[in-house]
């Protein structure tokens, strides 16, 4: 069982998805799993419940449309695929056929961010901006592989749509001991306590932020890390609390366009609540179509890697009010 993994170990989020869906299929006889030809991790569910598994082949639009029809009829469909295609090719189906009637369809997929070395057709870099714009949609981005299972389990009781973003999902660091945090959709996780500044992040970048915070601790800085795995609805209370408790010093790091993702969500809270910040830095993907390279290389190239995170954090801590 996945639950035997502990902090720091590597685990495939995809295998957690496969195992969790197979489990949930047992307790929820109205759970369906659909995929546009991205089915390798769904084999366990497919073999156990072939009558509730639909692989439409390469056809994202009909895949989401079918999920809508299933949900209209009282089922809980999970659509699993690659996010650059699900979030854009099927965007209108997600909006008009899932969000408009507010149906309990889960969209879960991989390749969120500059990951997988597939080139810009295969990087979902604007997906969170698109999904956060949709009425009724709950938007998550998950790094800790065990959390994926927890969020899927919780989502069974959700009345409306849910988007779950993963990176590649083949080998991810376990960030939290099971039971260490109260994981609830809509609530940010204080992954590391600190008072000098807050790094807000999500997805696989959380591991990098924690690493940055540990290294900065050696330099004498006490940096808080927030895993804001739910981007919508954003945990505005936690943002406000961090502004107050960490000197209004914010760094947002994400594997998404720097404008339109978590940084923009946090900035909205700052503006709407009139929070007084000392410094605000956002690190993320600039407006470029990125080329090839390994995940870490691309993060470094575009200025949101480990060193850039540390440098930005030092700057906000040094900033004068």
């Amino acid at each position: 069982m996945a639950e035997t993994f502990t902090f720091g170990e590597m685990l495939s989020a995809r295998s957690v998805i496969g195992t969790t869906l197979a489990e949930l299929g047992e307790t929820h006889d109205n759970l369906w799993v659909l995929t546009p030809d991205i089915g390798a991790t769904l084999v366990e569910f497919r073999d156990k419940y072939p009558e509730r598994f639909v692989d439409v082949g390469l056809a994202e639009q009909v895949c989401v449309g079918i999920a809508s029809g299933l949900a209209y009829d009282g089922n809980i469909p999970v659509v699993s695929g690659m996010l650059p295609f699900l979030s854009m090719r099927a965007l209108e189906q997600i909006r008009s056929d899932i969000c408009y009637p507010n149906l309990p369809v889960k969209i879960i997929g991989t390749h969120g961010g500059l990951v997988g070395n597939g080139g810009s057709t295969h990087y979902a870099v604007e997906d969170l901006a698109l999904m956060c714009a949709l009425t009724n949609m709950t938007v998550t981005s998950i790094g800790d592989p065990l959390m994926v299972g927890e969020v899927l389990r919780q989502s069974m009781a959700m009345p409306g749509p849910l988007y779950i973003r993963l990176a590649v999902g083949k080998s991810d660091k376990v960030l939290y001991e099971p039971g260490q945090h109260d994981i609830r959709i809509g609530k940010g996780i204080v992954a590391r306590q600190g008072t000098d500044a807050t790094i807000f992040t999500h997805g696989t970048v959380v591991a990098q932020a924690l690493e940055a915070a540990e290294e900065l601790a050696v330099e004498g800085f006490n940096v808080r890390v927030i895993d804001m795995f739910t981007l919508k609805p954003i945990d505005a209370d936690l943002v406000a609390q961090c502004a107050e408790e960490t000197g209004g010093r914010f760094v947002i790091v994400e594997d998404h366009l720097a404008y339109g993702g978590l940084a923009s969500r946090v900035a909205d809270v700052v503006a709407d609540r009139g929070l007084h910040l000392t410094a605000f830095e956002r690190l993320g993907i600039p407006q470029v179509f990125a080329g090839f390279g390994e995940d870490e290389q691309l993060r470094d190239k575009y200025g949101y890697g480990l060193e850039a995170t540390k440098a930005a954090t030092r700057r906000v801590i040094a900033a004068t009010a």
């Binding site: 639009q61 989401v64 449309g65 079918i66 999920a67 029809g69 299933l70 009829d73």
Partner: peptide
Amino acid sequence: LPIAVGMALSA
């Protein structure tokens, strides 16, 4: 029609 396919699968 995609939605109809989903409803038909459900049936």
